[in-house]
């Protein structure tokens, strides 16, 4: 019905967060340019948030296409056939189950990716320090 709207909303929020983090990182890079030389290059937080953005925006766009295909999204107001047919309560219930489930699962998988990336970075850091010692 309109489950893709939940991950789309999350994508809007995470896009804003990514922009804010990117701005802070560029400011930090200017102030700490010479002082903060890490042992090995790390993936920036903004780039990690970018992974989540790409999954959410890409998934939502393709899911929106599926809804157009099935006639659940229409090009005229109110844009959703469920609202037009008076099935708003059903639509909201579906958004609460499938939509929230989608957003949560994508976010959990992204959190796993970030955790794995952090572990790999720490291992790299340790092995480089050992080699240097």
């Amino acid at each position: 019905m309109a489950c893709f709207l939940v991950p789309t909303t999350e994508a809007i929020v995470t896009t804003v967060v990514e922009k804010v983090v990117k701005t802070r990182e560029s400011k930090d890079a200017v102030t700490h340019n010479e002082n903060s030389e890490s042992v090995c290059p790390k993936v920036k937080l903004s780039e990690k948030i970018g992974w989540l953005n790409k999954m959410l925006w890409g998934g939502s766009a393709l899911l929106a296409f599926e809804h157009i295909w099935h006639g659940e999204v229409i090009p005229v107001f109110p844009f959703l056939t469920a609202v037009q047919n008076g099935e708003t309560a059903d639509m909201l219930a579906e958004m609460g189950t499938a939509g929230v489930g989608m957003a949560v699962l994508v976010t959990l998988i992204w959190a796993g990716m970030v955790a794995a990336s952090n572990v790999i970075e720490k291992r790299d850091d340790k092995s480089t320090k050992k080699e240097e010692a």
């Binding site: 790409k54 998934g59 393709l62 994508v106």
Partner: peptide, 13 residues
């Protein structure tokens, strides 16, 4: 990431 995102969403569906 785009295809994996869509796959996860369809899996939930």
């Amino acid at each position: 990431l785009m295809f994996w995102g869509a796959s996860i969403m369809w899996l939930v569906d």
